[in-house]
């Protein structure tokens, strides 16, 4: 449980802080909100880019998956 939720909870708390920080203070608050909200963006884009290495990965995986699908239809 701990293993599954540790990162999501940390990111969630960080985002909450970021959303509020920009509202209550300017200057330092703005910087805090930019850094905090950049975290989910960075993790998300990283995840997307890794799956963007798909073409090669797909080339290897396509044969078994593809033939299985072809066999079914």
């Amino acid at each position: 449980m701990m293993r599954i939720w540790l990162w999501p909870v940390l990111i969630g708390v960080l985002c909450t802080l970021g959303l509020i920080a920009g509202l209550v203070s300017q200057g330092a608050g703005d910087w805090l909100s930019w850094l905090a909200l950049a975290t989910p963006v960075a993790i998300g884009l990283h995840g997307l880019s890794r799956s963007g290495a798909r073409p090669q990965a797909r080339g290897e995986a396509l044969t078994p998956a593809g033939s299985r699908r072809a066999g079914r239809s």
Partner: peptide, 12 residues
């Protein structure tokens, strides 16, 4: 990807 992007954008 759906799970990852969904959980990181959750609070926003």
């Amino acid at each position: 990807l759906h799970n990852l992007l969904g959980i990181v954008t959750l609070v926003w």
